[in-house]
Write a protein that binds this DNA or RNA. Structure first.
Length: 335
DNA sequence: GGTCCCC
DNA sequence: GGGGACCAACGCCTC
DNA sequence: GAGGCG
C-alpha cells in the first residue's frame, strides 16, 4: 500500500499563483488525486477537450518510499510548464517498469497501432534513406492538452524516466545540443564529478561556448552545450569528443574517455561523449529516474557545483517544493 | 501495461 | 468475463 | 559478427 497521505481539508483545487509560479494544470493534479483516492481508475479531462484513461494510480512504483504511479503522474504535471517545453517535438523512447522500480523493465520505440486519441504519434525518419517509423513525439507547445496526454500516456504504460532524442521533428537530423555525460567510478564519488564538470566548463568557456548542467538523477552530471541551428549529429559528436578528450588528456588522474570498465582507471570520472548520435536519448530535465527515492534530473548552477552538492537530495518530493525556482533556473540556462 | 485469442 | 501467451531497442565501440 | 557499454 502507498504511504499514508495527508488528507486534504478540501478537494477544491488551489488557485493558481502568479508569475513564474503559476500552476496552469492544478486542476489535473486534483483530478489525479481524486481518481487515486477512489478505485485508481478514471478518465482525465485535459485542456482542449482531450481525455486520457488512467489506471492503477495507487500502485506503488517506488515501494521503499511510498511513491505511487499517481504520485509520479502528479510530479510530471507539476513540472510540466518546463518539461513540456523541453520534450516538445522530440521523439520519445520509453523505458517501462510496469511493476515499479523493483520489477522488470524493457525499452519500447514503436508505440503500436492502438494509441489513444489525443496522444501524439508521428512518422519519423529514424535513419536517412530508410522508411519513416511510428514514434511517440512530445506534444507541441501550443497544444497543452495533447502534450500532457502524450506525457501522461507514457506514464500510464509504466514509463518512469522521460527519455528524448537530441533533435526535434521538423529538423530531425539536427540536434539542438551536444551532451557530455559525467559518470563517476565508485571511487571517484560526486566530488570528482564536480571537479571534472568545472574542467569541462572551462574548456568550453575557452571556446566561448555556453553550457547548462543538471544532475543526471543518478550519480553524475549531464552537461548540455546548445548548438547553432542546422548542426548535424556529426558536429555534435566531434565537439563532444574534442572536449572530452582534451579534459581527459590534461587530467588523466581525474577524467577518462575509456569505455571499457576494466580499462578505466579507478577513481576517475568517465566523460561519455558517445551519446551524440541519431536515435540516442537523454533523460530530460525534471525526468524522474527509476532509482530509490525517485531522484530527479535537476538543473544546477555553477555556483552550486561545489563539494556540498548532493545529487541524491533531489527527489520527487524535494524538487516539488522548490519547483518554481528550479523551473526559472532552467529557463534562464536554456532560454 | 496492452492486446489478442480461446474457452 | 477470465485466463494465458505474447509483445515491447538501438548506436557505436573494440576485439 | 559478437560482445560490451550506456
Amino acid at each position: 500500500m502507498p504511504a499514508k497521505r495527508r488528507t486534504q481539508s478540501s478537494s477544491r483545487p488551489r488557485p493558481p499563483r502568479r508569475g513564474a509560479g503559476a500552476d496552469p494544470f492544478a486542476d489535473v493534479v486534483a483530478q489525479l488525486e481524486a481518481i487515486e483516492r477512489g478505485d485508481g481508475e478514471g478518465e482525465l479531462r485535459l485542456p482542449g477537450d482531450v481525455t486520457l484513461r488512467v489506471t492503477s494510480l495507487a500502485k506503488p512504483y517506488f515501494p521503499g518510499d511510498g511513491i505511487t504511479k499517481g504520485d509520479l503522474m502528479r510530479f510530471y504535471v507539476r513540472v510540466a510548464p518546463v518539461l513540456l517545453d523541453a520534450i516538445a517535438d522530440r521523439p520519445l523512447v520509453l523505458r517501462r517498469y510496469p511493476g515499479g522500480i523493483d520489477g522488470p523493465s524493457f525499452h519500447q520505440h514503436d508505440p503500436g497501432d492502438n494509441t489513444p486519441d489525443g496522444v501524439r504519434v508521428e512518422e519519423v525518419v529514424v535513419q536517412r534513406g530508410e522508411p519513416a517509423e511510428r514514434r511517440l513525439v512530445g506534444g507541441p507547445v501550443d497544444e497543452p492538452g495533447v502534450a500532457l496526454a502524450t506525457l501522461l500516456y507514457t506514464v500510464q504504460l509504466g514509463t518512469i524516466p522521460v527519455n528524448v532524442w537530441h533533435s526535434r521533428v521538423g529538423s530531425i537530423a539536427s540536434p539542438d545540443y551536444a551532451v557530455l555525460d559525467l559518470d563517476p567510478d565508485p571511487k571517484a564519488g560526486f566530488a570528482g564529478v564536480i571537479a571534472v564538470a568545472r574542467l569541462v566548463h572551462d574548456a568550453l568557456a575557452r571556446r566561448h561556448l555556453a553550457s547548462a548542467a543538471k544532475t543526471s538523477g543518478s550519480r553524475g552530471i549531464h552537461m548540455l552545450i546548445p548548438l547553432p541551428g542546422g548542426s548535424s549529429f556529426d558536429d555534435a559528436a566531434s565537439l563532444a569528443e574534442e572536449i572530452a578528450s582534451e579534459v581527459a588528456t590534461e587530467h588523466p588522474e581525474m577524467a577518462t574517455v575509456e569505455r571499457s570498465l576494466d580499462e578505466r582507471r579507478r577513481g576517475t570520472v568517465y566523460v561519455d561523449h558517445l551519446q551524440n548520435a541519431a536515435g540516442k536519448t537523454l533523460a530530460a530535465v525534471f525526468s524522474v529516474r527509476a532509482r530509490p527515492h525517485a531522484t530527479v534530473s535537476t538543473p544546477i548552477t555553477w555556483r552550486q557545483v561545489t563539494t556540498t552538492l548532493q545529487p541524491e537530495r533531489y527527489t520527487i518530493r524535494t524538487v516539488t517544493r522548490q519547483r518554481d525556482s528550479l523551473m526559472t533556473r532552467w529557463r534562464s540556462l536554456m532560454g
